[in-house]
């Protein structure tokens, strides 16, 4: 009974089906543990968490500089900025917008820097459903290679106040 003290000699090795199950479950746990380091080295989708400390002021300045240097158009009053292939792109998150609109080429690899000016935000790329955390004070670097073309909305998926649901952005891939 689970509500009374066990009789003496309760410390026994498992046997029968119980033993089989523990063996199976442990094997499964080991498989799952190995899957992650395997994917880290051989898989194409990883979150390495590369990041650097940065102040909001410095990051804001870098984003403006980047936008001025590589602006190719404008949409909804926000500049469309093409990241040079293989180069660094910047995305600024703040209550309640993403700045600027980014333009990329399929198959090219970019270093995308994301940080926040104010609260914590979420970088959620739709409809792919790829999600990364954005923190103020941290420059989060995603080394990213678009493998499909189109217009991809970015939505914020970390609560950031009353206008959270209006916080959207855009990535264009050609």
């Amino acid at each position: 009974m689970s509500i009374y003290s066990p009789s003496e000699g309760w410390l026994q090795a498992p046997r029968g089906p119980e033993r089989i199950w523990i063996g199976l479950a442990l094997t499964w746990c080991i498989v799952m543990s190995l899957a992650m380091p395997y994917w880290h080295f051989y898989g194409k989708q990883n979150s390495s968490g590369e990041s650097y400390r940065v102040s909001a002021v410095d990051f804001g300045a870098r984003v403006r500089q980047f936008a001025e240097a590589h602006k190719v158009g404008e949409e909804a009053g926000i500049p469309i900025v093409e990241i040079p292939p293989g180069g660094d792109g910047y995305l600024l998150a703040r209550m309640w917008s993403f700045y600027p609109v980014l333009k990329m080429k399929k198959g090219q690899t970019y270093r995308l820097h994301i940080s926040s000016m104010d609260l914590q935000h979420g970088f959620s790329l739709q409809p792919l459903n790829m999600n990364f955390q954005v923190l103020p004070g941290y420059d989060h670097v995603l080394t990213i290679t678009p493998t499909s073309t189109g217009i991809f909305p970015i939505i914020c998926n970390e609560f950031c106040g009353i206008g959270h649901h209006m916080m959207t952005g855009r990535i264009i891939v050609e």
């Binding site: 949409e75 909804a76 926000i78 917008s97 979420g122 959620s124 739709q126 409809p127 792919l128 459903n129 909305p153 939505i155 914020c156 998926n157 970390e158 609560f159 206008g163 959270h164 649901h165 209006m166 916080m167 959207t168 952005g169 855009r170």
Partner: peptide, 22 residues
């Protein structure tokens, strides 16, 4: 799985800069 965020009031993103939805 469709990408709908948690803790989010409006899946239509009414008032957002760019029209978005699911």
């Amino acid at each position: 799985s469709y990408g709908v965020p948690r803790r989010h009031w409006d899946v239509e993103f009414t008032g957002g800069q760019f029209a978005t939805g699911f």
